[in-house]
């Protein structure tokens, strides 16, 4: 499953996508994120299987543009901590 967390508003499209086929629930991204945007929880979208997967916390889903902002400087963009930490390449950002 591709889980798209985030939103689109007048200013743009801000989504963090977790590919749950690739995610193994290791939690490296959770540790890496300075803004504590991610957590590893039971898959809310497949309650029957209920695998442990990385997802964006409820508190951040409506403001990831701002939560992730300091990690996306306008110049000399470094790779994002969550994406860099994920050995499975399961995380992408839309902006």
């Amino acid at each position: 499953m591709l889980a798209n967390y985030g939103y689109k508003d007048g200013s743009g499209e801000y989504f963090i996508t977790v590919d749950t086929e690739k995610c193994n629930g290791c939690g490296d991204c959770v540790e890496a994120c300075p803004a504590k945007v991610l957590e590893v929880i039971e898959d809310q979208y497949d309650p029957i299987e209920g695998d442990m997967i990385a997802s964006v916390t409820d508190a951040h889903r409506k403001k990831i543009k701002y939560s992730c902002g300091p990690g996306k400087p306008v110049s000399n963009r470094p790779p994002l901590p969550c994406m860099a930490a994920c050995a499975q390449d399961a995380i992408t950002h839309s902006w």
Binding site: M1, N4, Y7, K62
Partner: peptide, 14 residues
Amino acid sequence: GKVTNFLMNDKCAA
């Protein structure tokens, strides 16, 4: 009926 891809926009009223 299993979810394979989704997005939810509840941040913005538009």
